[in-house]
Simulated scan of single mutants.
Amino acid sequence: MDLTDPDADLPVPLPLRVQALSVGFAGRAVLDGLDVTARRGEITAVLGPNGAGKTTLVRCCTGLVRPDGGRISVLGGPPGDRRSSARVGLMPQSTGAWSGIRAGELLRYLAGLYATPQDLGLLVAELRLEPLLRTPYRRLSGGQQQAVNLAAALVGRPELVFLDEPTAGMDPHARRATWSLLERLRSAGVTVVLTTHAMEEAAALADQVFILDRGRVAVAGTVAELTRDGQSLEDVFLAHTSLPAGA
């Protein structure tokens, strides 16, 4: 297995390049020769049914899961490389490890881990977190926890950030605030890779879209390319994916 990127010695390698990635759990292929890229200063959306491999892809790219085969380059190096780890942000689907700490204390602690963190006041204002700062993380609603998780992923000023279903559970106001923040990040040159089940979210934000099915890329392109025949992004999704197991 070779997790390095053959293009990593080029002057400006892609922030993320995944080639022929394979992962199996309990004898079942979760990722099966997956190819995904993300370009600098763009939002890349990864879509797929439950079990298609979206979260496993994110975990491989952040060094949390070691693949069985394939190549991954993250900011020109291997996943989880200590030399680039401070330049990569991750927002997981959930993080029970934070349950006993207040939201504000958590964000201040995380900001203190970086030499030049984001302005916490700005993040708090953009994500409307001020009323939540004194509340223990475990007492926040699912959507409120997501907003805190997002702030935590961004506080270190990452060049590349992975967001696993960032707006799940958010109300419409919080979701639109999150969209605005992601658009600001893109304008600042940050590379964003997000997984989502929300077709409208991908259609509104994504510069490129990868639709996964059973661990492979079923179809990929810009939203305009994927919908040029008059179909909605949801129509394209349904046409190229299978029902999740047990559905």
Score class of each variant (00 low, 15 high):
residue 233 L to M: 09
residue 82 R to M: 13
residue 9 D to F: 12
residue 171 D to R: 03
residue 108 R to S: 14
residue 241 T to G: 12
residue 114 Y to T: 06
residue 14 L to E: 07
residue 60 C to D: 04
residue 152 A to S: 07
residue 208 Q to T: 10
residue 105 E to Y: 08
residue 15 P to F: 00
residue 37 T to S: 12
residue 100 G to A: 14
residue 160 L to F: 05
residue 143 G to R: 10
residue 32 D to I: 05
residue 227 T to L: 11
residue 146 Q to P: 04
residue 105 E to T: 15
residue 204 A to L: 08
residue 33 G to W: 01
residue 44 T to G: 02
residue 88 V to E: 05
residue 204 A to H: 15
residue 56 T to M: 14
residue 152 A to V: 03
residue 182 L to P: 06
residue 160 L to K: 08
residue 68 D to N: 10
residue 226 L to I: 03
residue 34 L to H: 01
residue 1 M to T: 11
residue 50 N to C: 03
residue 219 V to Y: 09
residue 89 G to C: 06
residue 51 G to M: 08
residue 231 Q to D: 15
residue 226 L to N: 00
residue 214 R to F: 02
residue 235 D to F: 04
residue 26 A to D: 09
residue 121 G to L: 07
residue 19 Q to P: 01
residue 75 L to G: 00
residue 220 A to T: 06
residue 6 P to H: 08
residue 62 T to W: 00
residue 109 Y to S: 15
residue 126 E to L: 09
residue 76 G to V: 03
residue 119 D to H: 02
residue 121 G to M: 09
residue 85 S to Q: 04
residue 186 R to E: 00
residue 64 L to E: 13
residue 222 T to G: 13
residue 36 V to G: 09
residue 19 Q to W: 14
residue 217 V to C: 14
residue 99 S to T: 08
residue 36 V to K: 04
residue 162 F to K: 07
residue 140 L to I: 05
residue 128 R to K: 14
residue 88 V to I: 13
residue 33 G to K: 03
residue 109 Y to N: 07
residue 245 A to F: 13
residue 116 T to A: 15
residue 90 L to D: 10
residue 40 R to P: 01
residue 97 A to K: 00
residue 88 V to S: 11
residue 215 G to I: 07
residue 125 A to I: 09
residue 242 S to P: 00
residue 46 V to I: 14
residue 218 A to N: 05
residue 113 L to A: 14
residue 247 A to Q: 11
residue 32 D to P: 08
residue 69 G to I: 02
residue 2 D to L: 10
residue 194 L to V: 10
residue 120 L to V: 09
residue 127 L to E: 08
residue 230 G to C: 11
residue 115 A to T: 15
residue 213 D to I: 01
residue 45 A to C: 11
residue 8 A to Y: 03
residue 57 L to Q: 10
residue 131 P to R: 04
residue 155 V to F: 02
residue 39 R to H: 12
residue 193 V to P: 06
residue 155 V to C: 01
residue 204 A to Y: 12
residue 140 L to H: 03
residue 62 T to R: 04
residue 27 G to E: 00
residue 35 D to I: 07
residue 199 M to L: 13
residue 51 G to R: 10
residue 5 D to Y: 08
residue 105 E to R: 15
residue 142 G to D: 13
residue 86 A to E: 11
residue 99 S to I: 05
residue 247 A to K: 11
residue 138 R to K: 13
residue 90 L to I: 12
residue 98 W to K: 06
residue 193 V to W: 08
residue 110 L to F: 13
residue 107 L to N: 09
residue 147 A to P: 04
residue 40 R to E: 05
residue 60 C to Q: 03
residue 129 L to R: 00
residue 148 V to C: 06
residue 214 R to A: 13
residue 106 L to N: 06
residue 82 R to D: 15
residue 27 G to H: 03
residue 21 L to I: 10
residue 221 G to Q: 04
residue 125 A to H: 09
residue 132 L to N: 11
residue 74 V to I: 11
residue 197 H to I: 11
residue 89 G to N: 05
residue 24 G to W: 05
residue 200 E to V: 12
residue 96 G to I: 07
residue 34 L to D: 04
residue 196 T to Q: 09
residue 114 Y to S: 10
residue 12 V to Y: 13
residue 1 M to G: 14
residue 144 Q to W: 02
residue 238 L to R: 14
residue 225 E to A: 15
residue 195 T to C: 14
residue 58 V to D: 08
residue 105 E to G: 15
residue 134 R to P: 01
residue 10 L to C: 08
